[in-house]
């Protein structure tokens, strides 16, 4: 499999405090790649760098073989059109209904007629089990529903890469599993590459192909789940042991 994302020697700082310290990793086409680590270790920061929302101090990030660091806005938009992002809190536009939120990318970036767009929206909302909430205002949704609506928006255009920032956080185990199953289905049916920031061990076990483990801004480990489970790195052992339910 070819690399679809390549991060090399990525360094970033906030107010002189080093957040990411020389991160190097590759994400391969059609894999589920998990960004793992304790709170405040820089997981979301890494994700935001990859999608060009933050600029690093130094280093290189290539997405679809194009350098993202220092890229022109128009070129970045071309890359982002092929990506979907599920933010930690959904980031739905509160003034719009669920339907209108999911319609944004379809209406703005395709030449599809309204009838077909509606059908796609219905399918996507059905996939995230939000069919009955289509015409609700987003302010009427619960936290879990917001996240699922945001996922429907993120996959509206069948992106080649789907970034998910804590997709299971705040969801009940059944919905969480349903989301994981959907991610796997998207990977299988649409050859999607999925990059997930998560803490949820159950979810990691269900979906992970490969993992990067971040600690204090450094990538302590990059490899498969099995390799991670057998790793002798103390921090990783602790992470998987403490979170395990005996």
């Amino acid at each position: 499999m070819e690399n679809i994302i390549e991060v090399k020697d990525l360094i970033t700082e906030y107010d002189g405090l080093r957040i990411l310290d020389g991160i190097t990793l590759d994400i391969k086409e059609n894999e589920v790649f998990i960004i793992l680590g304790g709170s405040g270790c820089g997981k979301t920061t890494l994700l935001k760098h990859i999608i060009g929302l933050l600029k690093p101090v130094s280093g290189s990030i290539k997405v679809f073989d194009k350098e993202v660091v220092g890229i022109e806005e128009e070129d970045l938009d071309d890359i982002l059109m092929k990506c979907g992002v599920l933010f930690q809190n959904g980031a739905l536009l509160n003034s719009l209904s669920v339907r209108d939120n999911v319609a944004i990318p379809l209406e703005q970036h395709s030449n599809l007629e309204r009838k077909l767009i509606n059908r796609i929206i219905e399918t996507k909302l059905n996939l995230v089990e939000l069919a009955n909430a289509m015409y609700l205002s987003t302010s009427e949704l619960s936290g879990g529903m917001k996240k699922r609506a945001a996922l429907a928006r993120a996959i509206a255009l069948d992106p080649q890469i789907l970034f998910c920032d804590e997709p299971s956080a705040g969801l009940d185990p059944i919905t969480s599993k349903a989301i994981d199953d959907l991610l796997l289905q998207l990977k299988r049916q649409l050859n999607m590459t999925i990059v997930v920031v998560t803490h949820e061990l159950a979810s990691i076990h269900r979906i992970a192909d490969r993992i990067v483990f971040l600690d204090q801004g450094k990538a302590l480990f990059v490899g498969t789940l099995e390799e991670a489970l057998n790793s002798d790195i103390k921090e990783i052992q602790e992470f998987f042991t403490v979170g395990r339910f005996e």
Partner: peptide
């Protein structure tokens, strides 16, 4: 599999009823 996974044929009109 894609036709089944993304099918909108079985979605009843009732589910998406407008208020």
């Amino acid at each position: 599999n894609s036709l089944t996974a993304f099918s909108s044929l079985e979605l009843s009109e009732k589910e998406f009823r407008k208020p």
